[in-house]
Nucleic acid binder design. Structure first.
Lengths: 240, 240
DNA sequence: CCTCATTTTCGAACACGTTCAAAAGTTATC
DNA sequence: GATAACTTTTGAACGTGTTCGAAAATGAGG
C-alpha cells in the first residue's frame, strides 16, 4: 500500500490535484445531476411527492446511486435549504443598504425570509416533518445547518449594527440570536397558517415589529433594563 | 346464544343494553386489546420501535384489524396522549389544593407536565415527528386534540383563578392560553434537551417563572399595562 | 497490455405504514 | 330456521425510504 510513498521527490503537490479533480469531476457531475433533479422536483412537487426513485430517474441514475452521494432524503432537502438561505441573503443585502431605521431593517430580514419561503407553503408540512428529527441535518440545531443558521443570524446582526440608532452593546450582542429564534417560530407559525397568502403571519409579524419598536426605548429606562436583560438571557438560553 | 332473550318481562330497559353492549363489547374488547398493546409498547419501546405489525401481534389480531379500529398509527399515539393528559390532571389537582401563590401554582402545572413527559424522553424524536404533521390528530391545533388541549388550558386557568392574589380580569382571561403556549414550547425545548435528566429544561422553567413573578407587578403599573396587553394579544393570536 | 485496488453504479431486498378485496362471523328480518 | 345485510377479521399487496452485496467503470503500477 505504501510502496511508492515518497517516490516523487519534487513538486508533486500540484500534480496530485488534477487527477483527483478529473476523477471527481465525473462524480461531481453525477452528484450535481442528482442534486438538481431533487431540487427541481422539491420546488415543483414538494417533499412527499418527490420520491427517491422518481428523482433518481429524473437524474438518469439508479436508486442506489443517489444514496451513494446523499445518505438520506433529508440531506437532499438540506441542499435546498442552503439555496434558500443564500437567496435570502442576496435579497436582503441590497435592501439593507437603502434603509436606516432599526426596526425597518429587522423587518426587511423577516419579510424577505417569509418571501423566500412562500413558494413552498403548500408543501410545508412535508418539509416541516423532515426538519424536526433531531438527527436530521435539517434540524436547526444540527451541526450541518449551523452554517446556514450563521447566515441568517448574520443578517440580523447586520440589520442591527448597521442601523442609524444603535443599541447598548450588551443588547446588540444578544439580539441577533434572539431575532433568529423569532424567525424560527415565525416560520413554524407560517407553515400552519392556512389564511389567504398567509396574511395572518404577515399581520403577526407587523404587530410584533410594532411592539418591538414601542418597547425599544424601555431599554434605556434604568429600572427596566435589568429585567429586560434577564428576559433576553432566558430566551437566548432557549436558542442554545 | 340468545335463547332466553326477552324471557324477562319487566325492566327490559336494562336488558336492551346488554345485547348492544355485548355486541360492541366484543368489538370494544378487540379495540381495547389493540389500544393496550400499543400503549404498552409505546411506553416500553417508543414510537419507532412500535410497528403496526408487532403491536397487532401483541394484541393477538391481524395487521388489517388494527387499521379497522385506528385509521393511523398516529391515532394510537393520540390514545397515549389522552392518557398522559389525564395523568397530568390527576397529579396536579391535589397539589393545587395545597398551594396559594400564583406563580407557585403555575409552576406546579408546568413541572407536573414535564414529569409526565419524563418517561418518554428517549423516544421524544419519534413522537415529535408524529406531532408536527398538520393532518395528524396529534397536532396541537387539530380538532382531535382540542379536548386534550382543553384539559391543560383548564389546569392553567384553575391555577390562576384559584390563587390568593388575583389578576385583573382582562389578564386572567388571556393568561391560560398564553401559559399553554409556553407549555408547548417548553415541551419542544425539552424534547431536544440532551442534558442530564433534562436539567436545562428545568432551569429554563425556573428562570422563566422567576421572571414572570418579577414582571407581575408591572401589570398594575398604569403606563405598562397597555403594552403588556398588546403583547398578550400578540402571543395569544399566535396560539390561534 | 495486463493486473488489481478503488471508486462508482446497479438493482434486488428489507421493513415499514397503509390499502383493499374478500372471507368469516354476527345480527336482523321474514 | 333460512336468508339477507351488517360488522369484523384477514392476509396479500402497494409504494415508500433505506441497505447491501456484487457488478461495472476507472485509474495506478508493473
Amino acid at each position: 500500500m505504501f510502496e511508492n510513498e515518497g517516490a516523487e521527490t519534487s513538486g508533486d503537490r500540484s500534480v496530485k490535484v488534477p487527477p483527483s479533480e478529473s476523477r471527481s469531476s465525473k462524480a461531481e457531475r453525477t452528484r450535481a445531476a442528482i442534486r438538481d433533479a431533487a431540487l427541481r422536483s422539491f420546488r415543483e412537487n414538494g417533499f412527499d411527492a418527490t420520491t427517491m426513485r422518481s428523482l433518481a430517474q429524473d437524474a438518469g441514475v439508479s436508486l442506489g446511486n443517489a444514496y451513494y452521494y446523499f445518505p438520506t432524503k433529508n440531506h437532499l432537502v438540506q441542499e435546498l435549504y442552503i439555496e434558500v438561505q443564500q437567496a435570502h441573503r442576496a435579497a436582503v443585502e441590497p435592501r439593507l443598504k437603502a434603509s436606516a431605521g432599526l426596526i425597518e431593517r429587522v423587518g426587511i430580514v423577516y419579510r424577505e425570509g417569509l418571501a423566500q419561503l412562500a413558494p413552498f407553503h403548500s408543501f410545508a408540512p412535508g418539509f416541516l416533518n423532515a426538519m424536526v428529527a433531531p438527527d436530521s441535518p435539517l434540524n436547526p440545531l444540527s451541526p450541518e445547518s449551523s452554517a446556514a443558521r450563521e447566515i441568517t443570524v448574520g443578517l440580523f446582526r447586520e440589520a442591527i449594527t448597521g442601523a442609524r440608532n444603535r443599541l447598548p452593546p450588551e443588547f446588540e450582542e444578544r439580539m441577533p440570536d434572539l431575532l433568529w429564534l423569532g424567525h424560527l417560530q415565525l416560520s413554524l407559525y407560517w407553515s400552519y397558517d392556512r389564511s389567504d397568502e398567509q396574511r395572518r403571519t404577515a399581520r403577526l409579524l407587523d404587530q410584533g415589529l410594532r411592539l418591538l419598536k414601542a418597547a425599544l426605548p424601555a431599554i434605556r429606562t434604568p429600572f427596566l433594563r435589568a429585567p429586560l436583560r434577564s428576559l433576553l438571557d432566558l430566551v437566548a438560553e432557549a436558542g442554545m
